[in-house]
Amino acid sequence: MMLKVRNLTSGYDKSRILFDMSFDVGAGEVVCLLGRNGMGKTTTVRTLMGLLPAWDGTVEFDGQRLDGLSAARVARLGFGLVPEGRQVFPNLTVHENLKVAAANRRNETEAWTADRVYELFPALLERTGSYANLLSGGEQQMLAIGRALMTNPRLLILDEATEGLAPVVRDQIWSCLARLRGLGQSIVVIDKHLKRLLSLVDTFYVVEKGRVVWSGNAQRVQQDEAIVKGYLSV
């Protein structure tokens, strides 16, 4: 397994959010964390990225322990984050947002470049000189994904990949992720659109109150549809 998360606990100040998070991500695999708001998915991402300290448990990436490392060290090891809320640099242009993130630390022969990102998201090519704060929500999400790809990540993490986006833009994001999967990109995605995820995701993990309570592939999701939807309903 590329990523092994075992018995991870974390939280904010004295409030524990993660109680016993455990899941795996294999090389070239697409994994989805499902769950209602407030169940610990974003906290999991922030802890993996070193933005929150792990209180207990372990995170291993290709056999190397990550818990305790700074966010900068984690990023340099090959984690690329598309954060909830996009968080693009508002006063930089589209092209500047991409260039500022450019890194090819492993000397990939087919590294991600701005041109490759524009080919993946043609809408961004038309806005290269536009400031990021003038983009639509969908364009900002494309830019956030492109910016993460410019780091040439070994593991791409998308927190709320299509939240608040119009259906036509969501379709573009799903198509992008399917293409990345075809290229062998390892992905962790957090999203709520279960029907669209079924054709994309290899393994689903349902998160409830800071721990995984169900896991399985798309076939198992369909077999246990009532159980899974029960965890997702408000």
Score class of each variant (00 low, 15 high):
residue 173 I to S: 05
residue 101 A to V: 12
residue 199 S to G: 11
residue 161 A to D: 02
residue 83 P to Q: 09
residue 109 T to Y: 02
residue 174 W to P: 07
residue 123 A to N: 06
residue 163 E to N: 07
residue 163 E to Q: 06
residue 170 R to Y: 02
residue 147 R to G: 13
residue 125 L to V: 11
residue 152 N to G: 00
residue 146 G to M: 15
residue 193 H to Y: 07
residue 138 G to P: 03
residue 182 G to Q: 07
residue 166 A to H: 01
residue 73 R to I: 07
residue 97 N to A: 14
residue 181 R to M: 08
residue 92 L to A: 05
residue 102 A to V: 01
residue 72 A to E: 09
residue 157 I to A: 12
residue 129 G to C: 06
residue 165 L to V: 11
residue 154 R to C: 04
residue 188 V to Q: 01
residue 112 W to I: 00
residue 132 A to R: 10
residue 167 P to H: 00
residue 116 R to W: 09
residue 85 G to V: 02
residue 92 L to T: 04
residue 142 M to D: 12
residue 162 T to D: 03
residue 89 F to A: 08
residue 108 E to L: 15
residue 191 D to P: 06
residue 154 R to E: 15
residue 78 G to H: 09
residue 156 L to Q: 09
residue 158 L to Y: 08
residue 197 L to K: 01
residue 128 T to D: 07
residue 150 M to G: 13
residue 150 M to F: 10
residue 180 L to E: 03
residue 106 R to F: 11
residue 128 T to M: 10
residue 111 A to L: 01
residue 150 M to K: 11
residue 113 T to N: 01
residue 194 L to H: 09
residue 107 N to E: 13
residue 123 A to Y: 00
residue 69 L to I: 08
residue 107 N to A: 15
residue 119 E to Q: 14
residue 97 N to M: 12
residue 134 L to I: 04
residue 176 C to S: 06
residue 137 G to M: 04
residue 149 L to D: 14
residue 166 A to C: 00
residue 122 P to M: 03
residue 153 P to C: 09
residue 82 V to K: 05
residue 139 E to W: 04
residue 201 V to A: 01
residue 189 V to W: 05
residue 91 N to S: 09
residue 161 A to W: 00
residue 71 A to I: 06
residue 158 L to A: 14
residue 199 S to E: 11
residue 73 R to Q: 14
residue 135 L to S: 00
residue 96 E to Y: 12
residue 143 L to A: 06
residue 160 E to I: 00
residue 120 L to N: 09
residue 204 F to D: 01
residue 140 Q to G: 15
residue 202 D to N: 08
residue 79 F to N: 03
residue 88 V to H: 07
residue 85 G to Q: 05
residue 127 R to A: 03
residue 198 L to M: 07
residue 115 D to K: 10
residue 201 V to C: 05
residue 96 E to H: 09
residue 125 L to M: 12
residue 179 R to M: 10
residue 97 N to P: 08
residue 96 E to R: 14
residue 135 L to P: 01
residue 174 W to Q: 09
residue 76 R to Q: 15
residue 108 E to C: 03
residue 78 G to A: 09
residue 197 L to Y: 07
residue 162 T to K: 08
residue 122 P to C: 06
residue 124 L to Q: 08
residue 194 L to G: 08
residue 142 M to G: 07
residue 78 G to C: 08
residue 177 L to C: 02
residue 158 L to M: 14
residue 73 R to Y: 08
residue 135 L to M: 02
residue 72 A to G: 07
residue 74 V to A: 07
residue 139 E to P: 15
residue 194 L to T: 02
residue 197 L to M: 11
residue 190 I to F: 05
residue 95 H to L: 15
residue 76 R to Y: 09
residue 132 A to M: 14
residue 116 R to A: 11
residue 178 A to L: 06
residue 195 K to A: 12
residue 148 A to L: 04
residue 185 Q to R: 09
residue 99 K to H: 06
residue 158 L to S: 13
residue 158 L to E: 11
residue 167 P to W: 01
residue 116 R to L: 15
residue 115 D to N: 08
residue 73 R to S: 13
residue 205 Y to A: 03
residue 200 L to C: 02
residue 172 Q to V: 03
residue 182 G to A: 00
residue 91 N to I: 06
residue 107 N to H: 13
residue 167 P to G: 00
residue 146 G to F: 12
